[in-house]
Nucleic acid binder design. Structure first.
Lengths: 225, 225
DNA sequence: AGGGGCGTTAAATCAGGGTTAAGAAACTTT
DNA sequence: AAAGTTTCTTAACCCTGATTTAACGCCCCT
């Protein structure tokens, strides 16, 4: 199986070294010298791993990483950071980074991590089921017994979280965090989306329901009438 | 099964080292640099283990620990204490700590303890029993000998507190605090809820009763007629 | 006999959750 | 760039059940 990765790095010499090294290992490695070009490549290809330098002209690594994640692309991203500061790391993980490497690094070390990340991706489950309900995570599709549920991005995330914790009640705070992350809407959005989700479950005649735990949260269960 | 922990530590370098080390062990480790942020994260996630430094800006480790326990969260907590003073240890265990580690420590030692605590938790069913009476804390359900008690949030908290101190009388003040925390209703709510609780115990024919200690409080006991 | 503490009851109030619709924002299409 | 479409947020409303409140009765005690 061939591996196809992208390197976004403005240091031409370093980039050349990496690309060369990876070619020898028969890993095909595209290269962009700035963030804008990098983003264009990401949108046009399906990479197994993306390597981002943090200091980039035009658009820095964090911003690029965020933009990639915003387009719901979950390709593993490895950050190349110049200094070993925690601020960088934390911001990086927050922006959706999967791993990082501090410069200067051994190129063998980079290879190992790239292989690990590409493996993680291919080993990643892309389907999530609960009874006859199936989520295709990559395609963002949901089916109950073959019938499709029409879900918006938010209701999809909601259902995903409920399914990952199925049969356990999930607190409102945890649900909100799963959907909106740090900055959450100030009002009753959650219950509106729960309502949409319930309607969709009805519409496909799923034998499932979203149970409310008063004062706490919700749980996804099978109907037991 | 993936492990998910929280580290609350204001020493950025130390935090970086720990987060780093744990990531390598594929333990995902969130980080907060102060108590307030830490508390927010605890409320929004379901961690397997929480690591607390004692000296923290804004809210120290003990206080944070107490607040976590007050929200009936029983996630194992490990304290990182700067000095090996007996006072610290005692206060810590009193506040609801499960383990502590004295700085400076070997990071391998920390890993071992985290793994031990996370195992303890996963083996733990969050159930509380007294005779045939069982509270399922996560699911917020109560059963006597298989029959379910219909409890409202307040009566549930009441019963929980009585069970945690079972066979001992619990003062009104302590009960009120367990249910309402700081701002409590000004009138006779407590006795009304005690009454509801007694009715529920009758309804499931529990051989238990809530005994009144005149002028003091209540205790949960077995009937001994 | 009367007062205090407790138990019981019912009514009044409140809060949480469900539903709906309108407008804002984001994204598509032309 | 404009129009149209979908999705998200907000706010208003309703309903139910939980909670508080207040009133009353009981019993024990001195």
């Amino acid at each position: 199986m061939s591996i196809n990765i992208l390197l976004v790095e403005d240091d031409i010499d370093l980039a050349a070294t990496i690309v060369d090294y990876f070619e020898v290992e028969s890993i095909s490695c595209d290269h962009a010298a700035n963030g804008v070009h990098g983003l264009a490549l990401v949108e046009a290809h399906d990479y197994q791993v993306i390597l981002l330098d943090i200091n980039l002209p035009e658009m820095d690594g964090f911003t690029l990483c965020q933009k990639i994640r915003e387009s719901s692309n979950d390709t593993p991203i490895l950050m190349l950071t110049a200094r070993d500061t925690l601020v960088d790391k934390v911001t990086g993980f927050d922006a959706g980074t999967d791993d990082y490497l501090v410069k200067p690094f051994e190129i063998e070390e980079l290879l190992i991590r790239v292989l690990a990340l590409s493996k993680r991706r291919s080993g990643q489950v892309s389907k999530l089921s609960f009874g006859k309900l199936v989520l295709q995570l990559r395609e963002r599709l949901a089916f109950f017994d073959g019938r499709e549920l029409k879900l918006t991005p938010i209701t999809f995330k909601l259902l995903e979280k409920l399914m990952r914790e199925s049969d356990k009640p999930v607190s409102r705070a945890v649900l909100m965090h799963a959907v909106w992350g740090e900055d959450q809407p100030d009002s009753n959005s959650l219950k509106v989306h729960i309502h949409h989700l319930r309607k969709q479950l009805e519409k496909v005649q799923a034998n499932l329901l979203i149970d409310t735990e008063p004062g706490y949260g919700f749980s996804l269960r099978e109907k037991t009438p």
